[in-house]
C-alpha cells in the first residue's frame, strides 16, 4: 500500500527531478542575484518540457536581452541569444524555416512589451505556433533597476524616486486583444501550477503567451522596502494573485488590484505556418 502512495506522490510533484540532463553544467552557477525568481521559473520550465516528451533537439529556446534572457545560456537545447526586444522576430524566422521545431521564447517584461512591443503584438496577431514566456519582474534589472511597462503605480525605482505615475500594461489583456490563442498567467511562488500552465502552453498549437510574475529582490524589493525575498514573494506573488477558478466565488472587493492566475483565454484559430503551407500546396496543385 505504502509503495503505491509514494508512486502517486512522485507523479504529482515530479521531483526530485534530474535538471542536469537539460542544463549546461559548465555555465552554472547562474548570474542571477540571490533570491531571483528567474531560477524558479527556469526549473518549472524544464520540468514542463520534460513532461511534454520532446527531445532536446526538437526544442529551440530563443531570448533577447535582459536578466531573464540569460536563460538559454544555461540550457542544452537549440538556443539563440538575440537582439534586445527582437527575440520574437528571430523566433518567427526559426519557426517559419523549420516548422517541426518547438519554439520557446523566454523574455522579460521590458524586452517583450517596451523594446519589442511591436513584435509582441504582431506575433500574437499572426498566431504562429510558439510559446512566449514573459517573466514579469517590473524592473530592468540588468541596467540598474529602472521602472518597466509593468511596474505598478507608485513603484519606487531608480528612475522614479518619488513613485511611478505611469499606468502599467496588463500583459495578458494585451496578448488577448492582439489575438494570441492561449493566454495564461503564473507566478514563481506557485511553481507546480506554473509547471502545468507551461506544459499546456507548449502543447497548444498557436501563439501561447504565459505571463510569469516573479520577484526582483535586488532592485524592486530593496527600493520598495520589502524585508526579504520571502516577504516580497508572499506579498507580490501569493497575496497579489488569485487563481481564476477561485475568482468567481470571491466578492469583487477582494479581487481589487489582484492579478488572475491560470488559463485566462484559449481559442482555436488557424495557425500561421499551417495556413502558409496550405496556400503553397493549393497554388502548386492549381498549376
Amino acid at each position: 500500500m505504502s509503495g503505491t502512495a509514494v508512486v502517486e506522490k512522485k507523479e504529482r510533484v515530479s521531483v526530485p527531478f534530474d535538471y542536469n540532463k537539460y542544463l549546461r553544467p559548465n555555465k552554472l552557477p547562474h548570474i542571477w542575484c540571490p533570491g531571483c525568481g528567474h531560477g524558479i521559473v527556469l526549473k518549472a520550465m524544464l520540468r514542463a518540457i520534460d513532461k511534454t516528451g520532446f527531445s532536446k533537439d526538437e526544442i529551440c529556446m530563443i531570448s533577447g536581452i535582459g536578466c531573464s534572457s540569460r536563460t538559454p545560456g544555461y540550457v542544452d537545447f537549440n538556443t539563440m541569444h538575440t537582439l534586445h526586444g527582437r527575440a520574437l522576430s528571430f523566433a518567427t524566422g526559426v519557426k517559419f524555416a523549420n516548422p517541426r521545431l518547438k519554439v520557446i521564447v523566454v523574455t522579460g517584461d521590458g524586452d517583450a512589451l517596451a523594446i519589442g512591443g511591436n513584435h509582441f503584438i504582431h506575433t500574437c496577431r499572426r498566431n504562429i505556433d510558439m510559446t512566449v514566456v514573459v517573466m514579469t519582474n517590473a524592473t530592468y534589472g540588468m541596467t540598474g533597476g529602472q521602472y518597466s511597462p509593468t511596474s505598478p503605480l507608485e513603484t519606487v525605482a531608480t528612475t522614479s524616486r518619488y513613485g511611478n505615475i505611469e499606468p502599467p500594461f496588463d500583459t495578458c489583456e494585451m496578448a488577448k486583444a492582439a489575438g494570441a490563442s492561449f493566454v495564461a498567467r503564473g507566478t514563481a511562488y506557485h511553481t507546480l501550477e506554473l509547471e502545468k500552465t507551461l506544459h499546456d502552453a507548449i502543447m497548444h498549437k498557436g501563439t501561447s503567451v504565459v505571463d510569469v510574475i516573479d520577484a526582483c529582490p535586488t532592485y524592486f524589493g530593496r527600493a520598495n522596502k520589502f524585508k526579504s525575498t520571502t516577504h516580497l514573494m508572499d506579498v507580490v506573488e501569493k497575496d497579489g494573485t488569485v487563481n481564476v477558478k477561485q475568482a468567481d466565488k470571491l466578492p469583487p472587493e477582494k479581487l481589487e488590484g489582484k492579478f488572475l492566475r491560470g488559463l485566462l483565454h484559449k481559442v482555436d484559430r488557424p495557425e500561421y505556418c499551417e495556413q502558409y503551407e496550405n496556400l503553397v500546396m493549393e497554388k502548386a496543385k492549381a498549376k
Binding site: 542571477w32 524558479i40 526549473k43 514563481a188 507546480l192
Partner: peptide
C-alpha cells in the same frame, strides 16, 4: 519538496 521546488539556484 518545497525547498527543492523553490530553490532558484539548483
Amino acid at each position: 519538496q518545497l525547498c527543492d521546488l523553490r530553490c532558484p539556484d539548483f
